[in-house]
């Protein structure tokens, strides 16, 4: 992403949040429609359970709305958002919440385009399942770092702020996580 466009997006998010702070719920609606998907997908990949992920995502946005009065645009809006999301996901994992739902590593694969043959679909689902299990087997912080790096395309500095550690610690987490994933997913190459 072009840096000018990126900084505009940052300012725009902060501007929207400041409007929410001033009592404009429509601006919260804009932020919700922009980040609803990324937050739910991140949480889904973290807790591996869609129902729990949506429940946690509701809590994330509710907390953002409740904290609007104290919002100060000191950091990127997304850093704040993913910090809340990560905190809730780690707590849910420690409480064993995803397993309680009985849908751990849930499927729900939806094929929007084309109609693959039954065999292709089975192969695809089997590969996808391997990816899910490989990610699920990572330690929580490594998992969070990989998901933010790979799927949210966050910079090391931002991941460091979300996880509350140094940039070099993030790189170390990522190196170990990718090493583990490489070993587990080598046969998919």
């Amino acid at each position: 992403m072009d840096m000018g466009v990126a900084s505009y997006a940052i300012e725009y998010d902060a501007e929207l949040m400041l409007r929410v702070k001033d009592g404009d719920p429509a601006s919260f609606g804009v932020l919700l429609s922009k980040y609803r998907g990324p937050v739910i997908h991140y949480l889904h990949r973290m807790v591996q359970n869609r129902d729990v992920a949506e429940e946690l995502a509701q809590e994330v946005f509710l907390r953002v709305y409740k904290a609007r009065a104290t919002y100060e645009p000191a950091a990127k809006f997304t850093t704040w958002l993913f910090r809340i999301a990560t905190h809730l996901a780690l707590n849910a994992l420690r409480d064993g919440k995803p397993e309680r739902g009985g849908q751990s590593l849930d499927g729900g694969v939806e094929h929007a385009d084309g109609r693959p043959s039954a065999e292709q679909q089975l192969i695809r689902e089997s590969r996808l399942d391997m990816v899910r299990r490989a990610v699920a087997a990572l330690p929580e912080k490594q998992r969070a770092a990989v998901l933010m790096h790979k799927y949210q395309e966050m910079e090391y500095s931002q991941i460091a702020k979300v996880l509350g550690c140094s940039e070099s610690a993030v790189k170390s987490l990522l190196f170990r996580a990718y090493e583990t994933l490489r070993a587990r997913l080598a046969h998919l190459a």
Binding site: H41, V109, E110, L128, V131, R182
Partner: peptide, 11 residues
Amino acid sequence: TRQALDLWQPE
């Protein structure tokens, strides 16, 4: 490895 992770697309 990163390409393998692309298999997991969001729903």
